[in-house]
Design a protein around this nucleic acid. Sequence first.
DNA 1: TGCTAAACGGAACATTGCTCCGTATCGTTA
DNA 2: TAACGATACGGAGCAATGTTCCGTTTAGCA
Lengths: 183, 183
Amino acid sequence: MTQRADARRNQQALLDAAAEVFVRSGVDAPVRDIAATAGVGMGTIYRHFPTRAELIIAVYRHQVEACAEAGPRLLAADPPLVALGRWIDLFADFLVTKHGLAGLMQSDDFRPLHEYFLDRLVPVCTSLLDAAAAAGEIQGDLTAYELMRGVGNLCIGSDDRYDARRLVRLLVSGLAAPRPASP
Amino acid sequence: MTQRADARRNQQALLDAAAEVFVRSGVDAPVRDIAATAGVGMGTIYRHFPTRAELIIAVYRHQVEACAEAGPRLLAADPPLVALGRWIDLFADFLVTKHGLAGLMQSDDFRPLHEYFLDRLVPVCTSLLDAAAAAGEIQGDLTAYELMRGVGNLCIGSDDRYDARRLVRLLVSGLAAPRPASP
DNA sequence: TGCTAAACGGAACATTGCTCCGTATCGTTA
DNA sequence: TAACGATACGGAGCAATGTTCCGTTTAGCA
């Protein structure tokens, strides 16, 4: 046995509580709130998730995996640029619904979070980008890393007056036509 | 007289100190640091600048004004889309060099900051956008508000591997060609 | 049932934002 | 120039939050 039963139970309770509190108060909700919602003490949360980044990663791991796995599927079903657009939409949908997640990424304190997301998704994005480039559907030499970060940034603070998804689509348009001022 | 001499002196000292500390530690530097650098007490900083947003606005007011005033000048000197591109570059340069400024904007606590920037710059951007649309150089109905926010977001966390300016240029490209999948 | 190691809980400390009030200083007026 | 009132100052103190530490509890095993 690698973990005691109560430890396993508490870890799951923390994941559930964090998911709930993140929706209610954003991913920067007070640690005490999460612990209280899970019905555990302060020590327990830090024992299971020493940093906030680790907790966030654990909470969203499934969704990130799902997004990553969708990439090849989309690429098989559609022309590369369409697939890229659809996949980026998927990623944007994920971020837009997580208030404050994208905003947190910029902070140096959350490097592990940043790294997990990018390590998992950049390769997928690269394959989509490469396919589109090979098909001659996009120009320019933008890296998948930059595209992911750009899309991530655009998704910050989406609301009534700022439709992040629209900006993301515009950015992808730019990929297909990178020279604005020349005919 | 509207303000005592020591008050005037301290206000200027605070502006100088804030500018210095913002460069050293970002715009979210501890209030105590700024007060200490200025050589004043906690009370004084809050008396002159009740909220952080007001302090930040005061520190950067000149630069925002300069950017706003550059708009019409650029529009007079170049074709609309070129002028728009140059002006956006100016704006991006301003943000990229202010570590954390763009990141702060998203927070609800800094609404006044957000509002000041947008109230001052959106009209300028609108005139550039309208001119470009009138000249048939761009399509789509993106608002200046959305464009400014998009550019602001893209400028978060620029570093070695993420060239925010490049993403901004790409976004502007998208403005000129909003339909990626059609020839 | 009793033992040990794992896990727990929450008090305590550090940091930071912000307020409040006794004190000091400025500018004016006699 | 001396005294006075209004203005401004300083920093202690409170509240919120992150993080650590250790005495206590409990699960699993013999």
